[in-house]
Design a protein around this nucleic acid. Structure first.
Lengths: 265, 265
DNA sequence: GGAATACTTTCCGCATCGTGGAAAGATGGG
DNA sequence: CCCATCTTTCCACGATGCGGAAAGTATTCC
């Protein structure tokens, strides 16, 4: 994640700092920031105070820690504006949450992982912990697999030969994953059965854009205790329906299936 | 919103650009960016490509427009991790207490009642008795009614047909309460006139989070003797202003009002 | 269709602006 | 109370960002 060749040096450095701050849970001290970004203390300090002047970072005088500021959040949220899907999807996600009683997530693909861009939380005490702006691997999440299933083979063939396992149930073999993606295309929704986190299940369906490419994926996530075997097909169907409504809203259309094998349907 | 004196010139400029991009709905062309930020085209271009290298801005080759990038969204979302409404609200509550001379409370909604999560006590001998962590019903408290007023009708329709009366002035009829909530939305703050305890009056305003949902409510509480009829609108306005400042601090925004009826403004 | 127009991108010499070592100022622990 | 550690300010050096101008590319209008 190093700053590549960048026309403007400071910007690369400032952004590296921001990215590090964003990853930390409770904020970083000056020296931590400096070390993380590989900068001299004075340089890091200058950049931090400069960002602070614009409220892109915040300094807590009590804990003496630096963290991400409001304005970075506000500006960053501007990203969602240009993603009309997110806006359009919200009411449908809300309905889905009401009907299913589970938390609904919306994610897009970005650089080999899924990023959560929308969420409607359910009212249960026990609920999923996905965070807006958070990243999750494609191969071991409902949204991720749903997105993958919509991509032509050519692109996911360059997967590593062994996928990282986050739980004992994670699909680590590309061949097994490939088979699962086939099933996903057939039934219309992906199932994540504790492949990302123990006790967490979800179902997810993909939303296609006007070109028939995957725009994003909607998922329903909840504890295994609540998302039982019998409910999976029901919830999956709901996710598919919601994805369909969002798709209609944004003028998307399912792609023409080119698969040569007997992928049915 | 101009970049003030900033230790690092480029950062001020880059951030100004990002902020402008974030405000625009569909993206900006290079020249629009340059003009908005008051920069030479070449300078704006250099900064933009630099930000693009870090995925903080995105360039749509088709429309030739620049907009906020994913990574800015991801990093900006890091703000939510370290955001604690209660802590951020404190300084603003303190100011409100100084200006009004009354005790200031902060409450969140939890399972059908309001819970006090913050307080700045005034210096008067006679003062309100809310306790941190204490619960208070939604229908007969300033904070409670303010929070209720921010919830879409669908959710508070399942109220019992007769609300418990804590004083002779408590609003016990759901219809009367509903009408009051309408008025609260109109004027921006709630009034509790001895509805919870005899002799106690308060005004309260709601603080919205980034989704436009109620995050918490601020109230000013004091004895009826001090909070006279003439002071109510003044104090109410102060509460609204403070709520606004807290909202800015946590990156919240007022919700888009969808109400079909004449709930105006 | 061709020329004029508007906008985007690259180039490069100049001096401004950012850099980081060092020192001063805080803070905390023993 | 002193030493160790971390934060903040300072400053001389030169690397780095600046913007005018020119080249390259879409768009419009006759």
């Amino acid at each position: 994640m190093g700053a590549a060749q960048n026309p403007v040096q400071v910007l690369g450095r400032a952004i590296a700092i921001l990215n590090h701050l964003a990853q930390s849970d409770s904020g970083l001290s000056l020296t931590e920031v400096a070390r993380a970004a590989g900068l001299a203390g004075s340089t890091a300090h200058r950049i931090l105070t400069s960002l602070e002047a614009e409220r892109y970072v915040r300094f807590d005088a009590e804990t003496r820690l630096w963290s991400v500021g409001v304005q970075a959040f506000i500006a960053g949220s501007g990203f969602l504006k240009t993603r009309h899907v997110v806006q359009m999807a919200r009411p449908h996600m809300r309905t889905l949450m009401e009907r299913s009683g589970e938390t609904v997530n919306l994610a897009i693909e970005d650089q080999g992982s899924a990023v959560y861009v929308g969420q409607v939380e359910c009212r249960e005490m026990m609920r999923s912990f996905a965070r807006l702006g958070g990243r999750i691997p494609l191969h071991c999440s409902g949204v991720g697999k749903a997105l993958l299933s919509a991509v032509p083979e050519a692109q996911w063939q360059r997967l590593p030969s062994l996928l990282p396992a986050l739980t004992p149930l994670t699909l680590t073999s590309p061949d097994v994953l490939r088979a699962d993606l086939g099933r996903i295309r057939q039934r219309g929704y992906a199932i994540d059965d504790e492949e990302h986190a123990i006790g967490l299940r979800c179902v997810a369906a993909v939303v296609f854009d006007e070109h028939g490419d995957a725009a994003c994926a909607v998922s329903l996530a909840g504890p295994k205790a609540r998302i039982t075997d019998e409910r999976v097909p029901v919830l999956g169907q709901m996710a598919v329906e919601t994805a369909g409504r969002i798709m209609a809203e944004i003028g998307g259309r399912a792609p023409v299936i080119v698969s040569a094998s007997g992928a049915g349907q």
